Computed example of a mutant assay.
Amino acid sequence: MRDLDSDSQPQSNTLLDWYDHHARSLPWRISPSDRAAGVWPNPYRIWLSEVMLQQTTVAAVKDYFHRFTNRWPTVADLAAAPDAEVMGEWAGLGYYARARNLLKCARVVTDQHGGDFPDTYDGLIALPGIGPYTAAAISAIAFDLQETVLDGNVERVMARLYDIHTALPTAKPQLKEKAAALTPAHRPGDHAQAVMDLGATICTPRNPACSICPWRAPCAARLAGTASELPKKTPKKPKPTRLGIIYLARRTDGTWLLEQRPDKGLLGGMLGWPGSEWNDAPTPAQPFDANWQDIGEEVRHTFTHFHLILQVMLADLPADFIPQNNQRLIARHDFKPTDLPTVMRKAFDLWKAR
Rank of each mutant, 00 (worst) to 15 (best):
D5K: 14
S8Y: 13
S8G: 04
T14Y: 04
T14E: 14
H21N: 03
H22N: 09
A23L: 05
L26K: 15
P27N: 14
D34G: 09
D34Y: 09
R35Q: 07
G38N: 08
I46D: 10
W47E: 01
W47K: 07
L48H: 03
S49W: 02
Q54R: 09
A60T: 12
F65R: 07
H66C: 03
R67C: 00
D77A: 07
L78I: 01
A84L: 04
A84G: 03
G92S: 01
L93W: 13
A99R: 09
K104D: 13
C105Q: 03
R107T: 06
R107I: 07
D111I: 00
H113Q: 05
G115E: 07
D116W: 15
I125L: 00
A126F: 04
P132A: 12
Y133H: 09
I141H: 03
A142P: 04
F143N: 00
E155K: 10
D163G: 02
A171L: 04
A171K: 00
A171I: 07
Q174D: 04
K178T: 08
G189D: 05
Q193L: 15
Q193M: 13
A194P: 01
M196W: 11
M196P: 00
L198D: 05
L198V: 07
A200F: 06
A200Q: 05
I202G: 04
A209D: 12
C213V: 00
C219S: 02
R222W: 12
L223Q: 11
L223S: 12
S228N: 08
E229A: 14
L230V: 08
T234I: 13
P240Y: 15
P240V: 11
L243A: 06
L243Q: 09
G244Y: 11
I246Q: 10
L248D: 11
R251C: 04
G254T: 08
E259H: 10
K264F: 07
L266N: 14
G268E: 06
G269I: 13
G269Q: 12
P274F: 13
P274T: 07
S276H: 14
E277M: 09
F288Q: 01
F288W: 05
N291A: 13
V299S: 06
L308I: 12
I309K: 15
Q311F: 04
V312Y: 10
V312H: 00
M313N: 04
M313P: 00
D316M: 10
P318F: 12
F321T: 02
N325M: 03
N326Q: 15
N326K: 10
N326V: 08
R328F: 00
R332A: 11
H333A: 06
D334E: 13
T338S: 06
T342C: 02
T342H: 01
V343L: 10
W351I: 05
R354N: 06
